[in-house]
Design a binder for these strands. Sequence first.
DNA 1: TTAGGGTTAG
Length: 620
Amino acid sequence: MAAPSSPATPMTPVLIHLLRGASDLASIAATHAKLFKSGAASTLSTSNHLLAAYCRCGAMTLARDLFDGMRDRDVVSWTTLMSGYTAAARPREAISLLRGMEFSGVRPNVVTFSTAACACARLADAGLGRQVHARAEVAGRAFDAVVATALVDMYGKAGCVGDARAVFDVMAAPARSAVSWGAMLAVYAQNALGSEAIQLFAKLRTCGTGVAPNHFMLSSVLSACAGAVRLGVGRCVHGTVLRLGHGSNQVVAVALVDMYSKCGRYNYSRKVFDRIERPSVIPYTSIIVAAAKYGLWRSALTLFDDMVKEGVQPNDVSLLGVMHACSHSGLVDTGLQLLCSMQSKYGIAPRPSHYTCAVDMLGRAGRLEEAFELAKEAQIEGNDALLLWNSLLSACRTHKRLDLAIMAGQRVSEFNQDVFMAGQRVSEFNQDVAGGLVVMSNVYASAGQAVKASAVRSNMRLRGIRKNPGCSWIEVKDTPYVFYAGSVSCAGARADDAMGAGARADEVMVLLDELECKMREKGYTGRLGSARVSDGDEDDGEEGKGVMVGVHSEILALGFGLLVVPKGMTIRVMKNLRMCSDCHEVFKLISDIVQREFVVRDLNRFHHFKMGSCSCNDYW
DNA sequence: TTAGGGTTAG
């Protein structure tokens, strides 16, 4: 729309005011027409207002047309459009505008650099982000508080935590606002560095920074506690949330729901959820996923129904949560119905994760042929395919179907070749590739084909693929104690280890020996010191020195827990892999022998052992 | 006087 050039009229301020308050395209276009008629639309200031209004409502084509038709453009015009593209999830166009404006001789300012850093954060592209950082430094703008904070966020989103911290550290203390602290805490929480987030939060509180924790920081720290399973710290943070009056913030409440759930306290999660007023899709999904992990399928399905009745539109994550609940409870047909109807009923197209969940569900239930057919039909590729076929492979091992395992194993190797051929970094997929190969090796071993099992292992060694070791840990008096298969010494605990996990290794072994004898009296036929390699995900191959050879990490954690956790208190063990059936049996028997309750959180879910049985009813 | 920084479910 080319406007006749004319100065602003007396009506212009009124129209600009209307424009600033408008959020829908129709009223913006109407005001634009009036400004055009009055002849004021062509001034730089009015054009910038119009540009901002179009960007605000996401009308990027109109914004771009207006921008292209402008006779003059200043730094505000360029930056407004950049910001619009970033908000509209088109960050590449924002970055290309940065180049365009420099080419046109318009100098970027602090707002431009922070917007550009934000665009790079969206792209999670550290290479591009470094270029923006360098240009900001050359222009002398990198130390601006907002630019620096945007750079912290950018490096964090791109996974470069060290660079984020370096930018944060060089910021002068007064420049470090609540937003800067919040950004750095989020960087740690989002990059699975829970302990670092907790330490930084403690520093904020104790170093006289004068910055009060706000809801951004609290939700990040709670998320860090959830990820690192630090219930003690999480509870303290909950206290801070209540004291500072952030209890009614929905994002903080979701972080609390998730923290309690991941730390093994579903009841607290549920209490926090029940106090949320008009929960949106994320709180609902959070509690549904929690219920699913605890095997509470009735609760998960009821919550899902409640959500739909309340008019809250479920999304792909909510549906995945309900499907997981079905999967962990053997409700295979209900789960499959959800998969089939999610597009027609809720308008959500199934994603690879939904197919993987359905294959897993069929596999657990022993319906392996159907699982195989579904896996083929899903036509998923790349790393998603690796996860899907690994899941089927795992089910074949559980149900001892070597024939199907070999076919699934072929698919896994095809995809893992593809993954390597595609030039992906080895570390990126290493654990998925390694997981599949370990299971394949275990399938062969359990079918008595030792030569093939060892060939898979040799192949892994040749290609430099190694699976991260399985470990378990328990938190005692706010300190985590970590155990690895075959070793009672514990990593991760404080140097002044008050409980003496290492020093008490002999006591743990004596106790486990005694318990093993008592388990035999109850009919246990396995051996704690030779956990079956083929049964679990834990890679016993190269672990184990001394007397505890082969003992899985969760058993060691339990032994230690029995020594140090007072009688009457539940012993809570966390594990980074799926619990094997042998250990599951051992936990059931010991809960009966010592008359205590144990909760184990494995890779997929929680198991609550009490009086010789488990909440999962042996189905997981 | 129009443009800029951090949070929650998988």
